[in-house]
Design a protein around this nucleic acid. Sequence first.
DNA 1: ATCCAGGCAGATG
DNA 2: CATCTGCATGGA
Length: 268
Amino acid sequence: MQTVYYPKNNFDIEATLTCGQVFRYEKVGEGAYVVYSKGHRCELKDNGENIEIRTDVPAYFENYFDLSTDYGSIVSTLMGFEELREAVEYGKGIRILRQDPEETVFSFIVSANNNIKRIQGIIARLCERYGDKKDGYYAFPSAEQLQRATVSELKEIGLGYRAQYIYDTARTLPGVIEKIRSAKTADEARKILLTQKGIGPKVADCIVLFGLHLTRSYPVDTWIFKANATETLNTPQRVHEHFISRYGDNAGFAQQYIFHYARNARER
DNA sequence: ATCCAGGCAGATG
DNA sequence: CATCTGCATGGA
């Protein structure tokens, strides 16, 4: 086990983990979390001065938490948009994680029309049932491992009507991953993902953003839609198009700040 | 009880 | 192309 340190500035553990981009984490104390990704695990602690990351695979998590990216410049760019100032100020420290594409695909299929608490439970059970057993936790199952699941087994986990989507995706995913990895743009990857059952516009955007780190992406869920809808921006698709063209390659970052602010700043 | 949650598929204008 | 409806499940 090794420990790496990262300056607190521009890294708010809690905001980053709870803003809905990732589902496999646990709070273990004040400013302390455990995070799981693929077959890896790390412990995070805000010690007041900096962030401690304890893990066997520091290089993996340095990439995962996007630690080599300067968020200061992203934040200052976003602050140039008047309508974002409050949300960015509020959520300063949120980072967009570089998650595993396969894990992101399965996770966000589960997320559709679902709430975060229940999504976390379903994903935890998926790992326990189909993932490799590690020391004290379970890895996220590969597509091949999930191919061994039957639809009725998946329903037992609580997937409901999404069980069939997971079943189908386990079989098609390896080919899809290969294609989206070589996609040149967010929009190209998005279109490939939209051919899959269970993946619609919002889920595709989440996969593109959190799994491929292509930030010209703007997932429009119920929260974002409520926050952005106007007389003319009156469908999710219109909201999506408008903010993609407005924020460009920073759209994904903007979206996270708005989402976090909408959910937390004013109690719903 | 009805509504909602990081929506989507399928059917219909 | 756009809009409408049913949907597993569990918590508020």
